[in-house]
Design a binder for these strands. Structure first.
Lengths: 336, 336
DNA sequence: TTGCAGGCACGAAACGTTTCGAATAGAACA
DNA sequence: TGTTCTATTCGAAACGTTTCGTGCCTGCAA
């Protein structure tokens, strides 16, 4: 492939002059600019990012690490990240951890090889041990999105998880439900811990208690939520309402309801966190606590780019976005 | 960051020896291997991909270009591509065209800058003019997935589109439907043209005709399918069945049906191409012609890697995968 | 006419690797 | 002991850029 040297020869100028034209990094006469541009067009020259990155020490690459791109929530993150980064002249590297901490580390290692300029990280664990591993592997500006990790003092963009759970629980209790089960995500992930603790608080504020046996662990997995809900709902003391702490788990519960031929909201009310794109085609349309994921992602990227250009250390600052309760048809007053 | 030079100094060997150890590219004594490995660990050395790519002329990067990662069909492609490539020691660059040919070209340009070793391309147009532009921009092994482009003689992995449409049309006609509307994708995309032409043929084989005014263009867009279906279904001569040529358009039709309070399959039968992940939570579960997208993607990547390593020119060979008719609850005999 | 500043263009070094021909050391053989 | 071979190890060039110190011209002021 043609190199900058070929362009220089063709345009009859020095290599450094071509570089100056391409990057507008030094004044060049109009005449020369034109000659260089013509030469570039004629021989079809395209910059070699690797060479540029090597010499300039700037890859202009952003790593985006998500649990699973197949989840619409995360594919939206990927899409928005790509767009915002591209506008700023960066390329994104989107990778899936599959909720596996070792895979997360492997990906971080790859990101390091690529010398990414920054990282958007939706981590699979939040404990201090994981944080320590993270800190030893990450040496670029990083922003957590949706969750955060102990001992890893990066900036974080999250939902107001406390309010999210309160919105759902208050709504359910307000409908008269007293026996509510919570389908919980992966233990040890901040997102889940915060949502769960907020549930407990919300119950307590109503003078009620969220019993441990009404917390069904499902690891954010659709299948595990299905299995857990199946057992829960088949028992004769089934709850009157279920609150699922993430979109995939909400779907799992819905499937369990359907396979047991239980009516929703007739027999059991259901509410989840994270909105669905076409709720009306579901049976029934599910009420949810939605998070403004597009705005959150934009904010995360902006924060990251800011940190990259300003070169100032992150302060571990947390920005919270407000959740929104969207009432549809999956919850009814108890005993109806 | 530490470089290979630091490792060499620390281990007391030459740079080239360190390289030999890292890449197992030349025989090195066990003693030295150990010393080098220790040194690498101690100073936390990580290879610099850009430098490696520059010198070796091999980026070990694969570009994956999809219309919209937000569509579950394509996020599956991305996920599978990432996995298979990673196993082969390649990294993937996933990018969205947003169904825009100019954006597609811009992305190709970026891919070229990155000197990707190969490309998986789901193109937004199939015409010869687009093919010509493509050929002028692409200079690496490329495999088309799902669609192909005229005048761009790369290998292609697709569904057996003819059979896919036949499966759906034969099923509908077999149920007695005579007035069937087809929601069509973007004109000029091979996938859509083939599906549409196969529809016409299938009708003809039954001695029927698919009238042009029963072909509703919707550009593969959910919203356009919704709008089109709304107009179609609000008219007093509405069809008794609808065949939507892609997953998003099927959803659009479903929404139209619901918003008009039309019963499916009572009033109108509906079938689509592409399966849904949790059909049972839809109302009703929609019958579809499914494509084996995971296997297709794996095949595409394998074909590509093969071409990259064998360095032989593509022959424009087409591999077709069989569709599968999955009957659920959205189609009923006519007049019921 | 001379001196000087400023605007442009140039050349060479450096970024971190891989690669390949050459050098070295020890072993085996005569 | 000298020679040849083998098994390692080394050194330097090259990949395609950017960057920065130099130097050449031109024009303007004195």
């Amino acid at each position: 492939m043609a190199t900058i040297k070929d362009v220089a020869r063709r345009a009859g100028v020095a290599i450094s002059t071509v570089s100056a034209v391409i990057n507008r990094s030094a004044p060049v006469s109009d005449d020369v600019i034109l000659r260089v541009q013509d030469a570039i067009r004629e021989i079809g020259y395209v910059q070699h990012s690797a060479a540029k990155a090597l010499r300039s020490g700037n890859s202009r690459l952003i790593g985006v690490i998500v649990p699973d791109i197949t989840n619409p929530h995360f594919s939206t993150v990927a899409r928005v990240a790509e767009k915002v980064c591209m506008e700023a002249g960066y390329m994104t590297f989107v990778y899936n951890t599959g909720e596996d901490a070792d895979q997360e580390m492997r990906i971080l290692q790859m990101m390091r090889m690529q010398r990414v300029a920054g990282l958007i990280l939706i981590s699979t664990r939040s404990d201090a041990a994981h944080g320590a591993r993270l800190m030893s592997e990450i040496n670029v500006p990083t922003v957590f999105l949706g969750s955060y990790v102990e001992e890893a003092p990066f900036d974080m963009i999250t939902l107001d998880e406390d309010r999210a759970s309160h919105l759902a629980v208050d709504y359910l209790l307000g409908l008269g439900h007293r026996d509510v089960a919570v389908i919980s995500g992966r233990a040890g992930v901040s997102t889940n811990e915060e949502r769960l603790n907020a549930c407990r608080r919300a119950f307590a504020e109503h003078g009620l208690e969220l019993r441990d046996d009404r917390i069904i662990p499902a690891n954010f997995s659709q299948q595990q939520a299905y299995d857990g809900a199946l057992a829960l709902l088949a028992a004769k003391d089934r709850p009157t309402a279920i609150f699922a702490l993430s979109n995939m788990m909400t779907i799992g519960v819905m499937r369990a309801l359907l396979s047991l031929k239980l009516s929703c909201p007739g027999d059991v009310s259901l509410i989840g966190i994270d909105d669905f794109e076409w709720p009306e085609i579901m049976n029934p349309p599910i009420s949810v606590v939605a998070q403004p994921i597009v705005a959150m992602t934009e904010c995360a990227i902006r924060t990251l780019l800011d940190q990259i250009t300003s070169k100032k250390d992150p302060v571990g600052h947390r920005t919270m976005f407000p959740p929104e309760l969207i009432i549809r048809a999956s919850c009814a007053p108890v005993g109806r």
